[in-house]
Nucleic acid binder design. Structure first.
Lengths: 243, 243
DNA sequence: GGTTGTTGGATTGTTGCACAATCTTTTCAG
DNA sequence: CTGAAAAGATTGTGCAACAATCCAACAACC
C-alpha cells in the first residue's frame, strides 16, 4: 500500500529519538502486533476501493474473515478510527468514513498549508532532500503511459511525501500521510488513461522547474495542480452522499 | 484539561459532515465510551505532570486503579499511543513518551508551519474568526498576575487554538491540538510568576497589533515568542534524557 | 572472574465466553 | 394507520485463561 503504516511511522520516529527503551537497533526487526497487521490489511482494502465509503463493518463477520478474536479486531478498528478512515458510533456500528465535499476541501486546505511552503523551504533545506524529491519525480516520469492506476498512485504519493519531507519534521510528515490516507478513501477509481499522461507531464514540468531553481513557478504549478485535484475529488464524492 | 479530547474532536467533525448516520442532533449528548473517558483521565494526568515522561504504566495496576477490565484499559492506552502521549513496546510495556530535544524542535517546526500562516490568513478569513481570537486574547490579558499556571496555560492554549482555527480546517485544528497535547508532556512545571506577567504583556501587544491590522508585526512577534518557548522547552527536557 | 546458556517468574498479547447496554425491527393493541 | 411494547440483533464491557515474550537470577564453562 502506498501510505506508510501509522504505527510504523510512530515506531520509526521513536527509534530516532530517545525512546528510553534500550537500543532499538537496526537488527531489531519490527514485531507487528496482530491489531496493527489487521489495521494495515483493512487500510489497504479501503485504499484500493474494496471497501467503499459507507460500508458497514460487522464485527462477528470480520472476526471470522480475519480469524481473530473480537477484542483484537476491535482494537484494529480503534486504530483506524483514530486515523479517520473508519467512523464509529456507539452501539450502532462502524463504517468506512464518508467524506463530504466539505471534508475534501478541509483536507486540501491542510495539504496546501503543508505542501506549498515545502517548495519554498527547499531553498534552505539540506540539498539531499531536494535530490531525494527529484529522484521520486524522475521515478514517476519514467513510468510508461500504460501503467496501472495503482502504481501511478503510489509514485504520486511518493513524490508528495518526499516534498513534505523537506520540512524536516516527522510530525508534519506523519500528519500529511494521514491526510493522504484519508483522501484515498475516495480514490477507488484512481487515475484513468488520460490522467496518467497528464500527471507524467505535470511532474516533468515540476521537476524541471525545481532543477532550474524557479521555486516560485514550481509553487504556482503545484498550487494549480492541487486545486484541480480538489475539484475532481469533490465531484467524485458527490454521488456518494445520498446513499 | 486544556486540550480538546481527540475522540470528541473526531465526533464533532463527523457530526458536521455527512456521517450517514441518522440525525446527530444537538440534543444527542455525546455518549462517551469507557476507554475514551479513561484516555481523557490519563491525558489529564499527563498534562498536569502527575505522570512524568518515562513513567511505566503497569496494566494490572491501572486496571485496578480505574476499576475496568484489562482490555478496556488497553484500548484507552491504544488511543493515547496513537496521539503520541504514550509509547508502547511489544511485550515490554507502555510508558509516558519521553520527548527528546529533537522532538521539541520537531513539534515547534510543525507549530510554526501552522500558526504563522494563520496570522496572514486573518486578512481573508471571516471577521468572526478574528473577533473570536481577540476575545480569547482579552480573556488571557484580563487574568490577574496572581493566576495559577494551570489556568494561565489553559488561556494560552485557547488563544492559540483560536488562532489556528482561522485556517478554517478541522483537520488542521485537530493536528495542532495533538501537537499541543504532546508538548504538554513537558509542561508539568508550567508558568512561573515571572512568566505570567511576561505572557500577559506579550498577548496584550499581540492583540493590539492585530487590532491595528499590522499582521506582519504580529507575525514577527509570534515567531519570536515561539522561538523563546521552544528554547525553554528544550532546556526543560534536557535533564529528563538520562533517566 | 567473566562470559555464556538455562530456567523460572513476571508482564504483555490474544482468545473465548458471558452478560449488560443499546439500537433496530417486528408485532400488536387501539 | 399510529404508536407503544416486545423480540432480536449488535455493540460495549468484564472475567478468566493461555500463549508469547521479556527479564533477572542462577548455574556451567572457559
Amino acid at each position: 500500500m502506498s501510505v506508510a503504516d501509522k504505527s510504523e511511522r510512530r515506531a520509526a520516529r521513536s527509534a530516532e529519538t530517545s525512546s528510553g527503551y534500550p537500543a532499538p537497533n537496526a537488527f531489531a526487526m519490527e514485531r507487528l502486533t496482530t491489531p496493527v497487521r489487521i489495521a494495515a490489511a483493512l487500510r489497504e482494502q479501503i485504499a484500493k476501493g474494496a471497501l467503499p465509503p459507507g460500508t458497514r463493518l460487522h464485527e462477528v463477520e470480520f472476526t471470522a474473515a480475519f480469524g481473530v478474536s473480537r477484542h483484537t479486531l476491535r482494537e484494529a478498528i480503534t486504530l483506524l478510527v483514530g486515523e479517520g478512515l473508519l467512523t464509529r458510533v456507539s452501539f450502532k456500528g462502524v463504517e468506512v468514513t464518508r467524506l463530504s465535499a466539505e471534508d475534501v476541501r478541509d483536507i486540501y486546505a491542510a495539504r496546501r498549508l503543508i505542501e506549498l511552503p515545502a517548495v519554498e523551504a527547499l531553498r534552505d533545506a539540506p540539498p539531499e532532500r531536494l535530490s531525494a524529491l527529484l529522484a521520486k519525480i524522475d521515478d514517476l516520469v519514467a513510468l510508461p503511459a500504460t501503467v496501472d492506476s495503482q502504481t501511478m498512485n503510489q509514485a504520486d504519493v511518493a513524490v508528495h511525501l518526499a516534498l513534505v519531507a523537506v520540512h524536516g519534521s516527522n510530525r508534519i510528515s506523519a500528519a500529511y500521510a494521514a491526510l493522504i490516507a484519508e483522501q484515498h478513501i475516495l480514490l477507488f477509481s484512481g487515475y484513468n488513461a488520460d490522467d496518467v499522461a497528464a500527471t507524467i507531464e505535470n511532474h516533468a514540468v515540476f521537476g524541471s522547474l525545481l532543477r532550474k531553481g524557479d521555486d516560485l513557478a514550481a509553487r504556482v504549478q503545484l498550487e494549480r495542480r492541487l486545486k484541480r485535484a480538489e475539484d475532481e475529488l469533490v465531484r467524485a464524492c458527490r454521488p456518494l452522499i445520498e446513499r
